[in-house]
């Protein structure tokens, strides 16, 4: 471990990233360009999030990584090991104990507190990207607050599907100013974007950092007659019986059997430990 500088990146790079983070916090939702470094993992595996985490971590921090809510998937395990090796920080799987949480595509179910930092991995930071391919034009649209196009996408959803069918990466307006890509979190998580913790977003390939400070107003875009709805599968969790958590659907066999489980593994486990029982857990016990 002593072979590495603390948290892998050199101090000048971390300083540069911290400046970008501070600027992002000062202008909520604004995409701050930064000089993204090559990281020892491929683009798309969270190079942006890892750089933001590296610049944020201190030796006293407790670090948690989730990938689609789970602590035990390849992406989460390898990033957690990466910082165990390079920063020697303590790691945890428990949301409450962590001070820095790096996440891919989910917000933890447990309410985060003011002394926690949530770091998102972002593949495409520009919410207007698939509507307007020119970066020069999208930057101008952000600076002039021309966001009509974002609603064209929602209009298309309704005209084709009868409802707003965008179910993840649902665009939000931050602090009544910038339209922001919340990274591909399910829209179930959108209401949670107004939280007590600091939220930092890092896009490594696209070289952008942006942020939502604590207690900042975050509004999901919608129409007056088609209001925003946070949706989830209409089931309780089959293991812990939770009705309020976001669920993954798991195919069990080739006979059409399937189960729904909390995508947040830590939340599910803590509920099971506390004695909550879901449908399949009951059957297993019987």
């Amino acid at each position: 471990m002593s072979e590495y500088n603390f948290a892998y990146l050199d101090e000048q790079t971390k300083r540069m990233i911290r400046r970008a983070i501070l600027k992002g916090l000062a202008v909520p939702g604004y995409q701050v360009p930064f000089a993204s470094r090559e990281m020892p993992m491929p683009y798309g595996w969270g190079t942006g999030g890892v750089q933001v985490s590296a610049a944020t971590l201190t030796p006293e921090d407790t670090f948690k990584v989730i990938d689609q809510g789970a602590d035990d998937t390849t992406n989460a395990v390898s990033i957690r090991k990466f910082f165990e090796n390079t920063a020697g920080v303590e790691t945890t799987e428990e949301t409450e104990k962590a001070t820095v949480i790096q996440t891919r595509h989910r917000i933890p179910e447990a309410k985060l507190s003011e002394d926690q930092i949530l770091v998102y991995q972002v593949p495409i930071p520009e919410p207007l990207r698939f509507l307007e391919p020119r970066e020069t034009e999208t930057r101008k649209m952000h600076s002039l607050e021309e966001y009509g196009l974002m609603h064209v996408k929602l209009y298309e959803d309704i005209s084709q599907h009868g409802a707003i069918s965008t179910s993840y990466a649902y665009p939000v307006k931050v602090s009544d100013r910038y339209v922001m890509e919340p990274s591909p979190i399910p829209k179930f998580d959108n209401p949670k974007l107004e939280m007590d913790a600091i939220q930092l977003f890092g896009a490594g390939r696209e070289q952008r950092i942006y942020a939502v400070p604590p207690h900042t107003k975050v509004v999901s875009l919608d129409f007056e007659d088609y209001p925003f709805e946070a949706t989830k599968a209409d089931h309780p969790c089959d293991l812990c019986g939770a009705e309020d958590s976001y669920l993954d659907e798991v195919i069990m066999d080739d006979a059409g059997n399937r189960m729904f489980v909390c995508s947040d593994t830590d939340y599910c486990r803590s509920r099971c430990t506390a004695g909550h029982v879901g449908r399949l857990a009951e059957e297993g016990a019987a």
């Binding site: 021309e146 009509g148 196009l149 609603h151 064209v152 209009y155 298309e156 309704i158 005209s159 084709q160 919608d222 129409f223 007056e224 007659d225 088609y226």
Partner: peptide
């Protein structure tokens, strides 16, 4: 779609009723 094309300017000036 054609409807979206026509609606774009309306949404750009603030219409929010589908």
């Amino acid at each position: 779609s054609a409807g979206g094309n026509i609606g774009e300017r309306l949404m750009a000036v603030g219409d929010r009723h589908y």
